[in-house]
C-alpha cells in the first residue's frame, strides 16, 4: 500500500481533529426545552424565552453563513455587516502600521549605522517598548481629541518598536565583509545603503515587520472595544452587550482568520527576501 505524503496525512489528521472537536462541542451544549414541554409555572417565570448560552457549533456555522453571505450590509450604527467591521479594523491597523514603518525603518537604519546613536537611543527604546499600547489611550484621546485617530495612534505606537529594534539590529549586524565590498567598489553612502545594507538586513527587518503586524492586530481589538463606534473589536463588545454569544464566537473566529491572513502575507514577503549565506 502506498504511503500518503506527509502533507496529506497532516491534512487528514487536521480534518479528523476538527470534526471530532466540533462533535464534542455540539454534544456538550444542552438543548433548550421546547415551550410546549414547560409547565405553566415555568412559562410564567420567563423560562420560555431563549436563554443565553454558549452556542453549539451548528448555530455558529449558521450565523457565519448568514453573515458571510451578506458581509457589507449597513443598517445603522449598531448593525453593520462583518465585512464592514473588519474593513474598518484593517484600515486602522494598516494606517497606523504603515505610519510606524515610515518612521521606524529609516530611523532604525540610522541607529543601526551608528554605534553611538544605538547606545544613546537604547535606554529610551527599552523603557517605551514594554508599555502596553492601551496605556497610551487616555493621553492620545486627550491630546489628539479624535477617537478614530487615537486608535490609529495606538496601533502606530505598538507596531513601531519591533520594526525599529529589528531594523537597527539587522543594519548593525551586516557583515563587515559586505560593507567592505561596497567600499572597495567606491559606492557612496546612499548606494551602499540600498544595494548592500538593505538587502543584507532585509530578512531581519521583515521579521520585525511581521511581529509588528501581529501585535497591531492583537491590539486593534482591544483598542476598538475602548473607542467604540466601528471595527471588529467594537463588534465583539457590542454583541456581548446584546448577549448574542453566537456572534461573539463567530467574530472571534473571524479575528483569527484575518490575523492569519495578515501574518501569511508577511510570511510570503519574508520568504522573498531571505537568502542563504
Amino acid at each position: 500500500m502506498p504511503i500518503l505524503s506527509l502533507n496529506i496525512r497532516a491534512a487528514l489528521l487536521s480534518v479528523v481533529m476538527l470534526v471530532v472537536g466540533l462533535l464534542i462541542w455540539e454534544a456538550a451544549i444542552p438543548g433548550q426545552k421546547a415551550v410546549a414541554e414547560l409547565t405553566e409555572y415555568e412559562i410564567l417565570t420567563g423560562a420560555g424565552s431563549a436563554k443565553a448560552g454558549v452556542p453549539p457549533p451548528s448555530a455558529v456555522i449558521a450565523k457565519a453563513w448568514e453573515q458571510l453571505s451578506n458581509p457589507f450590509y449597513d443598517a445603522g450604527p449598531n448593525d453593520k455587516g462583518i465585512g464592514i467591521q473588519i474593513g474598518y479594523s484593517i484600515y486602522r491597523v494598516l494606517t497606523g502600521y504603515f505610519l510606524a514603518a515610515l518612521v521606524a525603518i529609516p530611523f532604525g537604519f540610522l541607529i543601526g549605522m551608528s554605534q553611538v546613536a544605538y547606545k544613546a537611543f537604547n535606554p529610551f527604546i527599552q523603557v517605551l517598548r514594554p508599555i502596553s499600547p492601551l496605556a497610551w489611550m487616555p493621553l492620545a484621546l486627550f491630546i489628539i481629541g479624535d477617537s478614530e485617530a487615537s486608535a490609529i495612534f495606538v496601533i502606530f505606537i505598538c507596531s513601531i518598536w519591533p520594526m525599529l529594534i529589528n531594523t537597527a539590529f539587522g543594519v548593525a549586524g551586516v557583515r563587515e565583509d559586505w560593507v567592505n565590498v561596497a567600499r572597495t567598489h567606491e559606492l557612496g553612502p546612499i548606494k551602499t545603503a540600498f544595494t548592500v545594507i538593505l538587502p543584507a538586513a532585509a530578512p531581519t527587518i521583515v521579521t520585525g515587520m511581521r511581529i509588528s503586524i501581529g501585535i497591531a492586530w492583537l491590539v486593534i481589538v482591544a483598542a476598538e472595544m475602548l473607542v467604540g463606534g466601528t471595527g471588529i473589536g467594537y463588534y465583539v463588545w457590542n454583541e456581548w452587550n446584546n448577549l448574542d454569544l453566537t456572534s461573539v464566537v463567530f467574530s472571534i473566529l473571524m479575528i483569527g482568520v484575518v490575523g492569519m491572513l495578515l501574518d501569511s502575507a508577511f510570511g510570503l514577503l519574508q520568504r522573498r527576501v531571505t537568502y542563504v549565506e
Binding site: V181, T184, E186
Partner: peptide
C-alpha cells in the same frame, strides 16, 4: 581610502548572497 583602482579578493569570497 578604498578605490576601484585596487581590487580585492577576500579569503571568505565576500560574495553578496542575495
Amino acid at each position: 581610502g578604498p578605490s576601484l583602482d585596487r581590487g580585492v579578493v577576500f579569503q571568505n569570497y565576500s560574495l553578496l548572497p542575495w
